[in-house]
Amino acid sequence: MSSNTPAISVTDLHKHFGSTAALAGLDLNVEAGEVAGFLGPNGSGKSTTIRILLGLLRADSGSVKMLGGDPWDDAVALHRRIAYVPGEVALWPNLTGGQAIGILSKLRGGVDPAKRDELLERFDLDPTKKARSYSKGNRQKVALVAALASDAELLLLDEPTSGLDPLMEQVFTACIREVKDQGRSVLLSSHIFAEVEKLCDTVTIIRDGVTVEAGHLDALRHLHRTTVSAVLDGDASALAGVPGINDLVLEGSKAIFTVGSEDLAGVLRALAGYAPRSLVSAPPSLEDLFLRHYGGLPVPAAEAKTGSHAQADTAGAR
């Protein structure tokens, strides 16, 4: 059944807290077996959406389905099939991390001890320490181990790596890839673009409780402009007249501009006539997509902290 039932299907979701509207018509779809990124700035409604999916908050209006069920009415049954990691993990200060993992796993319906021990090892977590003495990152590891040790069909992860160091982020990335290989679904709310670009098939970007961009990452990239940085033999200002070049920034013989995917072939042909000494092109990064919707300025490729490809290219150009 999980092959054709969407993992999450949210349409026109509304939620008010008093007079403030937290969600105002949010759409979110996650197909079974898909890793979905969920992006939005602080206060845009990501956590509210996840809490509604967990049946902790009640939707004002709109349709919400998770694994084919109603998150509010079928909460207990659905929760046997999902796992949740909050961004801010609150634990019982006088219990050990291992005890907390045991309690959370039992509530989800049992745990495979071998898998739990393997995860404790990979995340380098001491389960005999009291939760009081854990740092934010270690508390997050407790929730991650409990969630990843389960055989949940769907993982709801709310900024799960916000307290982890880069090494542990790599472990997390590997774990999520394994989850994906097993055909399970993941909703990953995050602020880390590189992480989402690495892991996610689809992305939903929200702003002020409304979905502003959603779809496959590749398709989204295609809709947006590629950033090109070129160093010419002569003065680069001649490029200003080339059709299809946008957002041109000139620094002597160096030019940085953006090109829509439909104009890319024409612009490259025109560039060849100016004898470029070096040329770096970066696909639109998730950060560019994100900032576009939040009024941020377009970031020149050379300075942008983008995906690994672009960084390697830039390094080569220097």
Binding site: R51, L54, G55, L56, A75, V76, A77, L78, H79, R80, I82, A83, Y84, P86, E88, V89, A90, L91, W92, I103, L104, K106, L107, R108, G109, A143, L156
Partner: peptide, 14 residues
């Protein structure tokens, strides 16, 4: 208040 209930109810506990 502490947010621990959220974690428990995210399990299959009514």
């Amino acid at each position: 208040e502490s947010g621990r209930l959220e974690l428990q109810l995210a399990g299959s506990l009514s």
